[in-house]
């Protein structure tokens, strides 16, 4: 028995080390370098990258929340060494034979080191286990094709099966055009999964981050028990340019921003990045007993 235990323990240790290294490598790849500067897209202030690391990539001058990658997002939320990624290498084929799509996918994968635009993970936040799905806008603008739809759906089904709370961070330009109608069908697939999860008594916290539009807004992202948004995030079904073309007039200041959605009753609270972990911890704690009472 002893050798068997030892080999199992060694294998677990090895797997854990591999995972930790993977996260570290991924967050290194996606994080902005420590030296140098970049300009805030909102107020044009020049910020040093050292500063931005300190503020979780929020502009120190105006509070603009710069988009961040999925692994960095998870590293800001999860307890150390509790991260376990699920279905990391899942991809979808070019089912519609869309010209040039494969080579674009390869380029996106090389640029981001992601297999597609969603990361699913199980981990602990303040000691509470939950399933996290994070969309990454660096990969094809976070658009939802079959791979994203499948990862979201599997994440939801996993949470239902293991009776865990579910947290989804959305950031998406909408449907993946190159996967056409199959992208559209992911809206039905993911929404159906959320509905089953909800009926089983599971807690789903949906967090809108900048920008979330189209098919993601019109499916799982809008179906949370609790809906949060990062300050200033653009959230909508139709994109601002399409709306402007349709109505033929200028859009009002702040239209489709998180604050606008809060005013119109579609967001419970706007939560700055610096308070996100604390807020999620509070919500998970408030639902500790209530989850899966059915």
């Amino acid at each position: 028995m002893q050798p068997l235990f030892r080999s199992r323990r060694d294998r677990l240790d090895r797997l854990r080390r591999q995972r930790e290294e993977a996260v570290e490598a991924a967050s290194k790849r996606e994080s902005i370098p420590q030296s140098g500067t970049q300009t805030c897209p909102n107020c044009n202030t020049e910020c040093t990258n050292a500063q931005l690391v300190q503020t979780d990539y929020v502009c120190p001058n105006c509070g603009y929340h710069l988009p961040i990658g999925a692994y960095l997002r998870l590293s800001l939320l999860l307890d150390p060494f509790t991260f376990r990624e699920l279905w990391a290498g899942l991809t979808a084929p070019n089912a519609l034979d869309f010209p040039g799509y494969e080579s674009k996918l390869v380029a996106q994968r090389e640029k981001t080191a992601l297999s597609d635009a969603a990361v699913v993970a199980v981990g602990k936040l303040d000691g509470r286990q939950a399933v996290f799905v994070v969309l990454d806008s660096r990969f094809f603008m976070g658009s939802m094709g079959v791979a994203v739809g499948e990862k979201v759906t599997r994440g939801v089904e996993y949470a239902k099966k293991h009776r865990l709370p579910l947290v989804i961070f959305s950031a998406s330009g909408g449907a993946r055009m190159q996967e056409g109608i199959l992208s559209l069908m992911q809206m039905a697939k993911t929404s159906a999964a959320i509905e089953q999860f909800s009926r089983s008594g599971g807690l789903y916290i949906s967090v809108f981050t900048h920008p979330t539009t189209g098919g993601v807004t019109a499916s799982f992202a809008s179906l949370g028990d609790i809906t949060l948004a990062e300050p200033g995030a653009l959230i909508g079904f139709a994109g601002p340019r399409v709306i402007q073309q349709t109505i033929g007039q200028e859009l009002p200041e702040g239209f489709q921003r998180a604050e606008y959605l809060e005013e119109h009753g579609f967001v419970d609270q706007i939560v700055p990045r610096s308070q996100m972990r604390e807020t999620l911890s509070q919500l998970l704690s408030l639902h500790r007993k209530g989850v899966f009472h059915r």
Binding site: S198, A221, S222, Q256, F266
Partner: peptide
């Protein structure tokens, strides 16, 4: 504009669900 203010995304999402 009004459709967005009225939650077009939410209306479609909840219909699907």
């Amino acid at each position: 504009l009004e459709a967005e203010a009225g939650g077009q995304g939410e209306a479609i999402a909840s219909s699907l669900a």
